[in-house]
């Protein structure tokens, strides 16, 4: 059993959620709710490269609903 995310030759997309978080995703799989495509289908390396270029602020964007300490 090999994890499909590790398939070096597989087809992937990059997803993004409203926190600005990115996710590598299998091109063939359904896109989970709350995520949208940030980078269309591409090779694995290209997708990761895309994330490295575009996800520059890794802090989750704090929404108004987050409780304050």
């Amino acid at each position: 059993m090999s994890n499909p995310f590790d398939d070096q030759g597989g087809a992937f997309v990059v997803l993004i959620n409203d926190q600005g978080q990115h996710s590598l995703w299998l091109a063939a799989a359904e896109i989970p709710a709350g995520w949208s495509i940030a980078c269309e289908q591409n090779g694995r390396e290209a997708c990761i490269e895309y994330v490295n270029r575009n996800w520059t602020d890794m802090r989750p964007r704090t929404g108004a609903d987050i409780q304050r300490a």
Partner: peptide, 11 residues
């Protein structure tokens, strides 16, 4: 970010 997107993926 790249590594994070590889391992922490959409649920």
């Amino acid at each position: 970010p790249g590594l994070t997107a590889e391992r922490f993926v959409a649920d």
